[in-house]
Amino acid sequence: MTGDWMREKVLPVLTVVAAIFALWYAAAIWMNSSWTLAQAERAGKTLTFTEIVKDTMSQSRPKLPVPHQIAAEIWKSTVKMKLTSKRSLIFHGWITLRATLAGFALGTAIGILMAIAIVYSRTMELSLMPWAVISQTIPIVALAPMIVVVLPKIGIEGRLIPKAIISAYLCYFPVLVGMVKGLRAPHREQLDLMKTYNASGLQSFLKLRLPSSVPYLFTSLKIGIAAALVGAIVGELPTGAVRGLGARILIGDQFGNPMQIWAALTCAAILAGVLIMIVGLLQRITLKRMGMAE
């Protein structure tokens, strides 16, 4: 059993990871070596191949840091750093996570409510759906600064709410689309059955449409939580924020500190992965309790 699991699940993943790492190291050697060679030339030295390789992996401002450098940077700015420090990635991660979760909750609520409105009202479908689609064609980077500028004018202070709104803006759409599909999943016979019981609209909704939509909802939530994280990070980029993973990326870029960019980037990726896994776990538990999965 465990052998099969290793062969079927772990091995393919490890193979891909190994391939990516190999490519990454090769690319780092190739991209960083020009600087190594230029330095050597200026000093009038000739380097062996081993010396070049070694140098490409230990520069403080490489064009492309290698994975173990990034790992070291993350280690330094998480485990070895006090949580309250302005350079702690855990601190910045928490700032971003907070906005992500707030945006996710807001976006999910908006998505579900809009889906209900659309499924139950033809007028709503005709009037809301095109705007929902158009909303996703506007680049969020263009919209984010406006949201950040406008909100304080209407009395909303702080950075959390603007970021959460930007995050919700990205996150509601997959939830909306998934929920519309889910609420419409019951086929004609199932709806007719409710009619033969003379069920009220609310009863049909609670006992048929809502449970039918749960698998669709979770699939959407997985996309939604990733979108919410992207939204929170984007919300930190153009707004002069100094806290959050997005701010770390931006500041790293402005001060020419690639290690910091890559460390923040990696943390964001890990955070996204963990969030998706948590939603996936909730999905499995929920569907199992509903009897819809083994």
């Binding site: 016979e189 199932q190 007719d192 059955l193 009619k195 033969t196 019981y197 003379n198 048929l208 449970p211 749960v214 509903m290 009897g291 819809m292």
Partner: peptide
């Protein structure tokens, strides 16, 4: 129908999986 005078059995059993 409103008085639930009949029970209807469809071709597909149509049980709710949940």
């Amino acid at each position: 129908r409103r008085l639930r005078a009949y029970g209807y059995v469809f071709q597909a059993a149509g049980l709710y999986p949940w």
